[in-house]
Simulated assay, not measured.
Amino acid sequence: MNQTAQPDPVPQPLPLLETDVLRTFVAIAECGSFTRAARQVFRTPSALSMQIKRLEETLGQPLFLREPRLVRLTAEGEALLGYARRLLKLNEEAVTQFLAPPLAGTVRFGTPDDVGTRVLPGVLARFARSHPAAQVNVSVGGTLDIIRRLDLDELDLALVTGGNDGQDQGRGEVVDTESLVWAGREGGIAARRTPLPLALASQGCAWRTKALAALDAAGVGYRVAYSSENCAGQEAAMIADLAVAPFPLSLIRPPLRRLGPDTGLPPLGDYQVLLVRNPKRSPVADALAEYVIEELRLARGG
């Protein structure tokens, strides 16, 4: 007997995540409290609780651990947080594309190579999608040169490292904090040489100032073996095992490694990245500045 073939079941569409609920979820995650988040999004804590309950039911996963006076993300909640932030940002870009007045013009942007390497790819890609009529001219150089060019009205916007011989005193806003550590070649011997050979950035750089001050305070003998306008020069000297260098933790990659306390080198602490705006800048420069701030926040998982 022939049996009639049953049609394949129609797959059910996946549920869509509502922007409003994602905004609530991000607010709670960042505030660590339903009550504080409720004030931020202008709703009651009970309304937020209902939204999160529906979201957890939709995804079939608990997103928060509720403790006395504290709300913490579960592992699933941490995974969702990254998606939620990107979805909200993409939604903002899409709405801006159609509703916001188009921005046009040129932004002259200056940055040291260590910061630019981390920030520029993501910033330029997203900024170009949202503001296709705008043009960004990027200048990469030392912090002191970038500050000088900003003062000469040759730049509209600049990222600089804080503590550069006082020339950035009271200027700009702190947009990132980075750990400065000692670095050298994996398995190398430069750190054991006496006096200690250093690969440093040019005079006036915050890294150089912090490193020399720390070595002097610790009584460690050293010699400046190599100087470079950019961190690529320092990196080359370290890879060749000719010197060690103060270096941002986020930029250390094989064959380089972080040098530990066993080397006898003093800790260097953190340094700050400042965003400085030209008072004569255009609205398109301010728009780019917001993308820079957001990219740095995402890069540090904030």
Rank of each mutant, 00 (worst) to 15 (best):
V123D: 00
A133C: 07
L120F: 07
L99Q: 10
L81R: 03
N164S: 14
L73D: 01
T143V: 07
L157W: 13
G122P: 00
K89W: 14
G116M: 10
T111P: 00
A134L: 01
I146L: 15
T143W: 08
I147H: 07
T161P: 02
N164F: 10
R86G: 08
E93P: 00
R108Y: 07
T117I: 03
D151T: 12
L159N: 10
V136G: 03
A104F: 05
L103M: 13
R149T: 01
L73R: 04
Q135K: 15
R129E: 11
G142W: 02
V107K: 11
L157K: 13
P101I: 12
L120H: 02
A100T: 05
G163A: 14
V140Q: 09
D145Y: 08
Q97V: 11
D113V: 06
R129Y: 09
S139R: 15
A158C: 07
T74P: 00
D113E: 05
V138M: 11
T111A: 13
T161G: 14
N137D: 06
V123M: 00
P132N: 13
A133I: 05
Q97Y: 14
G105Y: 05
R108W: 03
L103S: 09
A128Q: 03
G162S: 15
D156Q: 08
A133P: 01
L144N: 05
D145T: 10
R108H: 06
D145W: 09
R85Y: 00
R126P: 00
Q97I: 12
P101D: 10
T111V: 11
R108C: 01
Q97N: 11
V119M: 05
I147C: 11
T96G: 15
R86S: 10
T117E: 02
D113M: 06
V107I: 04
H131A: 07
P102M: 10
P102Q: 15
P101M: 08
P101Q: 12
E92I: 02
I146F: 10
A125E: 09
A84K: 03
A125I: 02
E78N: 00
F109I: 03
L103F: 11
K89C: 08
T106Q: 09
K89Q: 14
T106H: 05
E76S: 04
A84M: 02
V123L: 00
T161C: 12
I147E: 07
V140H: 03
